[in-house]
Structures are given as C-alpha cells and as structure tokens.
Amino acid sequence: MDSTIYIITALALGVSFYKSKDKTILALKKAWKSFENILPQFLSILLIIGFVLSILNANQISELIGQESGWKGVLIASIIGSITLIPGFIAFPLASALLNNGAGYMQIGAFISTLMMVGIVTVPLEIKFFGKKAAILRNSLAFVFSLFVAFMLGVFLK
C-alpha cells in the first residue's frame, strides 16, 4: 500500500511540475503548512494513544467494543463517534490501533462512520446555516446510515 501512494504522488507531482513550476512549489508549501498545522495535535494524540493502550489491555477494549460486544458495542462506538471531533488523520491511526488491540470491525466501522458524518458538537453551527429541520434531519439520517455501514463492515470483514 505504502509504495502505491508514493507512486501516485510522484506521478501527480511530475504532471503538476510539467504544467507549472510555480503552482507546484505553492502546493508543496501548502502541504507543509497543513502538515505543520496538525503536527501538535498529532504528536499529542500519539502520546495519549501510546499511554492509554498501555493501561487498557486488549481484554478490556474487546469487552467494550470487541466483536463479542455486538450491538451494545456498536452503540457505544457510534455515540462516541457522534460526539467527538477528531480529524481523520488522527482517527484512522487510533482506529487501527484499537483494531489491533481487540476491537471489532463492526464497532470500529460505527465509530469511524459517525465520527465523519455526524457532528453533535457542530449541530448549532449547522442549524444556523441550514435551519433546525434540515440540520437534525441530516444528522439523524447520517447516524442511521452509519449503523448500516457498521453492520455491512461486520458482515464482510470476518
């Protein structure tokens, strides 16, 4: 997987550089800026994950959101996902660490999907922009859909 990304990136950079040198340099500057933007959060989360995973053993994680936890675990994971605001670049390493430590695919799927599509914290902002009915409707539909995605992931991945 790693090498694929490098090949895609190298190709994209090559085409971009051929078309415009200035724009490519600008793109690289923006790339660095957005990386540096998440760096403090990113490093902190890594330290927290490292510590939390060292205290919680695999048994405790799998009891809470493991494969055996079933719909209760899915519900716990989706509520956590709906409330928290974690950028994807941080959520995926966290999710993959949880998977390696006993969490189930269905539960992690519920967490990831609600994290991205449902935003309880940002609902007030959404209401301001689109009105109460539209905001609540979108978030409810996204929540139900996330449970469906979790179910399908649970069915297809062992």
Binding site: I8, L13, S16, K23, L26, A27, K30, A31, F89
Partner: peptide
C-alpha cells in the same frame, strides 16, 4: 503522511 499531504497541497492549488 508526506505523500498524503503533498497530494492535499496539489489538490488545493489545482
């Protein structure tokens, strides 16, 4: 991360 962010920058510019 490095290739991901480079792609992000390229998309942003183009």
């Amino acid at each position: 991360l490095p290739p991901v962010f480079i792609l992000l920058g390229l998309l942003d510019v183009w």
